[in-house]
Every structure is written in structure tokens, then in C-alpha cells.
């Protein structure tokens, strides 16, 4: 029943066009602005890729948790924990040491921030959605407190840490300002490929997905759902922390109050849109990157940036409709 799908897409486009018209703009022009602003020039593409990087790594964090049957809403908090701790450590060292320590400490912080949610889920059956949301708030407020006091750079007015030494920053793989592409993107792509292979080719990946697909059958297969839950949540948190650390070391150079515009939340959409393939997180995060960068261009044109969020919502709905249509046909 392909016509239903077509109707769905046409309907979604009509709603979008209507929303743009309400904002007193032309739908066609808006689309042009959006695409030109995100893909039209080399520097626009570089900006889109910069937006894509944290979405990609956070998307993978949500994705791996989903494979284990966990809905990690806490990637935002884990990203903040990772970024904050990375900045604290990396500013105290120079050169490659600062970079490596920053990444490791960021991952560790993210993992530790997710760990309570994993433990509570595994051993007390407390729902991870609730616990991770609460941990998000704790992370945001705690990081804000730290950065306005103990770890604040006394030499500047901003509530921010000092800058990480240039020698500890992640290198550019292409730099011709304003067009710059950071090594961080390569890390993200390698992570996606590595995760896809790990899930498919290792017994540990098989067991993680078994728990996600059928917890009870996994238990009968000699797998401990508790252990897998804790491990998966920690890996997810470590990736969230890594995304934060990379954001510090690649782009921002420091940690400050209001550090993330909500990458951890957008990552939920990235992972849902990707479905059940880690490779699909690549195009999915790129699409989110395009809309995020293009949204900024729209804003300059006087169209509310929120319209891109509406687009994303529609995309996720359509993806879900396609997926569940398949499931109900199987049943």
C-alpha cells in the first residue's frame, strides 16, 4: 500500500509549506535558503559537518543503548559531564598528553554519569528514562555551578574555563579558513563503522542485542541481562562523554555555561531515524546537521528556526510509519 506512504509524505510537505506560509515566507525560497545555507558553499558544508560531528557521536551513544533495549535520554548530561571534565584536565597539560587525557577523562566522566541509571535499571528495575532525565538536570546545574566558580577562568568575564592549549587540540584534516574540517569527524565515522562491525561480528555484540530484542530469551541463553544493561549504559555514557570531550578539543577549546544546544536530545532523533543499523547513523546525523546549519540561514532570512524542528519531527514520524508498517505486515 505504497499510496498511503505517498499520502503521508505529501501531507507532511503540505503541513510544512503551510507553516512556512504562515510565517509570511515562500516555501520554495525557504527550501533554497535552507539548502544553500547548509550545502551551497564550501564553508556552508564545513559548517554542516561541524554540526554533524557531535550529532553523529551522540547518535551512536543513543543507538548502542537502543540496541540493548535501553532508552538513554541522558546523553545530553553525559556530554556535559564529559566536556566539563575534559576541559578541567586538558587545560592542565600540554601537547598530545592533554588531548589523550582529555578524551579518556571525558569518556570516563560520561560513563560514570550514566552508570547510576544502568545500575538502577539492572538491579532495581527503575526506568532509565526517568533516571537519565534527572541526571541531565543534575549535570547541567552542577556544570554551571562549577564553571561559574571553582573552574572558572579568573582572567575573563565569561563563565567559562580557560582555553585548552593549542597543542592539545584535535588537528584539522583540512584547513583553509573559513573552510575547516576537523579530525573529529573521522573519529565519528570510524566509531560508526567500528560499532556496526562490533555488533555484527562479536559474541559480546550478539549478546547485547539479544538482551535488547528479548530479555527473557537472553536470560535462558545464559546471558545476564543485568550485566549487559550496566555495560551498555556505560558504553553509551562513554560515547556521550566522548562527544563532549571532542567538542571541547576540536571546536570550542573550553567549557562554558550553556555549552550544548541540545545535541544529546537531537541525538534521540538521529538514532530513531537510523533504525537498526549503525551505518545509518551516518546519513541520519548528516541530515540533522544539514537542517541545523540550514536553520541558522533561515533565521537570518527571518523565518523561525523552529521550522527545521518541525521538519525533523515529520521525518521521524514518516520513518516510524514505514518501520511499523513493515512490522505489522510481518505479524
Amino acid at each position: 500500500m505504497i499510496w498511503r506512504l505517498i499520502a503521508l509524505i505529501v501531507g507532511a510537505c503540505a503541513i510544512l509549506a503551510g507553516a512556512v506560509l504562515v510565517a509570511h515566507a515562500s516555501p520554495i525560497e525557504s527550501l533554497q535558503t535552507l539548502i544553500h545555507g547548509s550545502l551551497g558553499t564550501p564553508s556552508a558544508i564545513a559548517g554542516t559537518l561541524k554540526e554533524t560531528t557531535p550529532l553523529l557521536i551522540c547518535g551512536l551513544a543513543v543507538f548502542i543503548a537502543l540496541r540493548a533495549g535501553l532508552f538513554n535520554i541522558g546523553v545530553e548530561g553525559q556530554l556535559l559531564a564529559g566536556a566539563c571534565c575534559c576541559a578541567i584536565v586538558a587545560t592542565r597539560f600540554h601537547g598530545i598528553l592533554g588531548m589523550v587525557l582529555g578524551v579518556l577523562v571525558g569518556m570516563l566522566a560520561g560513563a560514570l554519569w550514566a552508570l547510576p541509571a544502568g545500575l538502577i535499571k539492572a538491579y532495581r528495575n527503575g526506568h532509565e528514562v526517568i533516571t537519565t532525565i534527572m541526571l541531565n538536570n543534575v549535570a547541567a546545574l552542577f556544570a554551571a555551578a562549577l564553571v561559574s566558580g571553582p573552574i572558572k577562568d579568573p582572567k575573563q568575564a565569561d563563565t567559562a574555563t580557560p582555553y585548552v592549549d593549542a597543542s592539545s587540540r584535535l588537528p584539522w584534516i583540512y584547513s583553509n579558513p573559513p573552510v575547516q574540517i576537523n579530525f573529529a569527524l573521522v573519529i565519528g565515522i570510524l566509531l560508526a563503522v567500528g560499532m556496526a562491525i562490533w555488533l555484527k561480528k562479536t559474541v559480546a555484540g550478539y549478546e547485547l542485542q539479544a538482551v535488547g530484542a528479548n530479555r527473557i530469551a537472553a536470560r535462558f541463553a545464559g546471558i545476564s541481562p543485568q550485566k549487559v544493561t550496566v555495560v551498555a549504559m556505560s558504553i553509551s555514557g562513554a560515547l556521550g562523554g566522548l562527544a563532549g570531550a571532542i567538542q571541547v578539543l576540536a571546536y570550542e577549546g573550553r567549557f562554558y555555561d550553556g555549552f550544548s544546544p541540545g545535541y544529546g536530545f537531537d541525538a534521540l532523533g538521529v538514532a530513531l531515524l537510523a533504525g537498526n543499523s549503525a551505518y545509518a547513523v551516518l546519513p541520519s546525523s548528516f541530515l540533522f546537521g544539514v537542517l541545523s546549519k540550514g536553520g541558522t540561514a533561515l533565521q537570518i532570512d527571518g523565518i523561525p528556526k523552529g521550522i527545521t524542528t518541525v521538519v525533523l519531527g515529520m521525518l521521524i514520524l514518516i520513518a516510524a510509519a514505514i518501520r511499523y508498517r513493515k512490522v505489522s505486515k510481518d505479524a
Partner: peptide, 21 residues
């Protein structure tokens, strides 16, 4: 249904369930 198989997985994937190690 609940304890022996993962219904969404292929027969191939289910062949290893319980014997995966």
C-alpha cells in the same frame, strides 16, 4: 515464544541463541 527465540531475528541468528559462546 518468550524464552526460546528472538522473533525479530532470522533463523540464522536464532541458531546461535544459547550456544553463542
Amino acid at each position: 515464544h518468550a524464552q526460546g527465540v528472538v522473533e525479530d531475528w532470522s533463523l540464522d541468528e536464532n541458531a546461535a541463541l544459547g550456544l553463542q559462546r
